[in-house]
Structures are given as C-alpha cells and as structure tokens.
Design a protein around this nucleic acid. Structure first.
Length: 287
DNA sequence: AGAGCTACCTGAAGGC
DNA sequence: TGCCTTCAGGTAGCTC
C-alpha cells in the first residue's frame, strides 16, 4: 500500500497526537508481525515520551526519551489510526466499548501534555509490516543504514542518480524500486515518474545519462510532492491516521489504467510484468 | 557482487 | 450462491 507520500501523510496525522506525549499503556496483541516484536516491547516503551514523529523513506520513526527509537514499517496493508474523543480508561476495560478488530495488532494509549489521552491503533491484515525498537547506535547499523537518498531532499540530484545507476544491468523500473538506489518509491510512483519523464521502464539503468536523469529526478520530485499534497493514493486499504482517504489516485497517468488512453497521446496504456510486478506505461510516450 | 525469483499473509474481485 | 484463481501499495532471503 504505502509508498513515501502515504507514509508522509500518516506521519503528519500522527505527529500532533504523539509529539510530546507519554505512552501510558501498550497492548501488543500478538507476538509478531512480519518479524517478532522487540523483546519486552511493551515494558520498554511504556512511560516513555515520544519526542517527535519522523519519516525516513517508507519508515516511520518515533524517537523516545528513553534513548531508543521505535520504527514502524507499514508493509502493504499497515495502517495507523487515532481514536479521538477518548474516554478515561478503567482497569480491565482498555477497549470497551470498542473491542479491537482481528487485525488490530498494537494499541498505544498516549497522553498529551494537555492531559488528553488518545488511542493509537496499528492494524495490518497481511502482516507484512513490522515494529522495531532500536538504540541510537543500532540505528546507524540497522535496516535503515543502507537506504539510498531521500528523493525529496536536495541531495537527490541528477548527478547522484546517474552515479547510483552506473553499471546497473537491470531495467530502470526495477532499479528505482531498489531502496538502495533511492528510498521511498514503490510500484505506483515509479510507473508515474517514468511516464512523466518519458522514459521507457525497459531501458537499462546504466543507459540513463545526465539529460534523462534530469527529467527523471524532476519527475520523481514532482510526482511525490503532488501526491503528498493530495494526501497520498488510496486504492483499497490505505487511509491517513484520521481515516481520511488520499486523492492522488485520481491523477494517475498510467497506474492501473491498462487499455485506457494515455493522457498525453491517447494511445492505450500497456501493462507488462517486470520482476514480478505490474508495470503500466505508454509505449508511445516513453522511450 | 548483482540480478531475479519466491515466500510471507489476507482479502477482494472476477470467472465459471 | 459458491468455489477457485488471480492479484495487490513491500522487501528479506534465497538461488544462480
């Protein structure tokens, strides 16, 4: 589900409720998601203050005043939601009168400096998401350390992209899905960026020179920025933390539009499979 | 080392 | 109605 724009939208939804709030109660409802929860997860985060809510690529990061950082990845169907207008908790009545659903795997009770308590639920039907808890030292060496540049940062330049694609024998579509090349794109936004840059998804990555890289970097930044402004793309599961859906799916040029006319040239949008995933493209516009 | 495939899991949608 | 197949926004881990 969630690529960079969706994760950023979730971050923006969670930040007001969580920044500066204390985690007052934790209900971890199963031992694992894609990976096991960290050892003693509930004990380690209960009582900690969330210092901020940040994003790196498709990861949400919650630095705590306990010197550990909670990391969440939404996988395909992960979702954070905030229950507002929350009542005072009675012992043993954590959920009443709203029992958690079968895919609600983690529930955090957070209390803001204002005294308001809110319940934050992580649900994930497919359980491809995961939660980690890392010390600052582990952050530097762990899963996030190998990620490529943030696509919306100034460090992601045409020159940097060309250097990262150098020698790659794989199609550009596959290369852009590789989080070590650039971090945060997924299937939707790679397809959309390649259309906007007029580059064929089949083109070998190593043949992207500076001119095409300029178009591609600009297209990636534009499509991601516009998608964030639109609150992301909702195909089925995705929603922001307040439950609202994204709008950017209405502005897809190619994704999910096989057989429909290309919005640039009106020839039919094609679909093919590359490294096991659907690629939507216009064979007339993209070279 | 790099590239490509499979597995992980559930639910929705489409074909028969 | 119901059963079966296919597909889905991601990525770790395995092969070659």
């Amino acid at each position: 589900m969630p690529e960079l724009p969706e994760v950023e939208t979730v971050r923006r939804g969670l930040a007001p409720a969580m920044t500066g709030s204390v985690i007052t109660a934790v209900d971890q409802r199963r031992p694992d998601l894609r990976f096991p929860f960290p050892d003693n997860f509930a004990q380690r985060v209960t009582g900690a203050t969330v210092q901020s809510v940040e994003r790196r690529a498709k990861f949400l990061m919650f630095p705590l005043d306990s010197q550990e950082t909670m990391i969440a990845h939404l996988g395909m169907t992960g979702r954070f939601s905030i229950v507002a207008g929350h009542r005072r908790l009675e012992p043993g009545a954590f959920y009443a009168p709203d029992p958690p659903g079968g895919h609600d795997h983690l529930i955090l009770e957070v209390k803001a400096p204002t005294g308001l308590s809110q319940r934050i639920t992580f649900s994930d039907p497919r359980r491809f998401g995961f939660i980690e808890l890392l010390s600052t030292a582990e952050l530097a060496s762990g899963r996030l350390s190998g990620l490529g540049p943030e696509p919306l940062s100034p460090t992601f330049s045409p020159e940097v992209l060309v250097a990262r694609l150098k020698g790659k024998a794989t199609p550009i579509k596959s290369a852009l899905l590789d989080q070590k090349v650039v971090a945060g794109l997924g299937n939707i936004y790679v397809c959309e960026a390649l259309l906007r840059a007029r580059i064929s998804p089949k083109r070998l990555a190593r043949t992207i020179g500076l001119v095409r890289a300029q178009r591609l970097v600009a297209a990636i930044k534009t499509v991601l920025s516009e998608a964030i402004e639109a609150g992301g793309s909702t195909l089925r599961d995705y929603a922001a933390a307040d439950g609202s859906e994204g709008e950017f799916q209405q502005r897809f040029y190619v994704y999910g539009r096989e057989g429909e006319p290309c919005l640039h040239c009106a020839s039919p949008v094609k679909r093919m499979v590359q490294s096991g995933r659907s690629t939507f493209y216009c064979s007339s516009c993209q070279r």
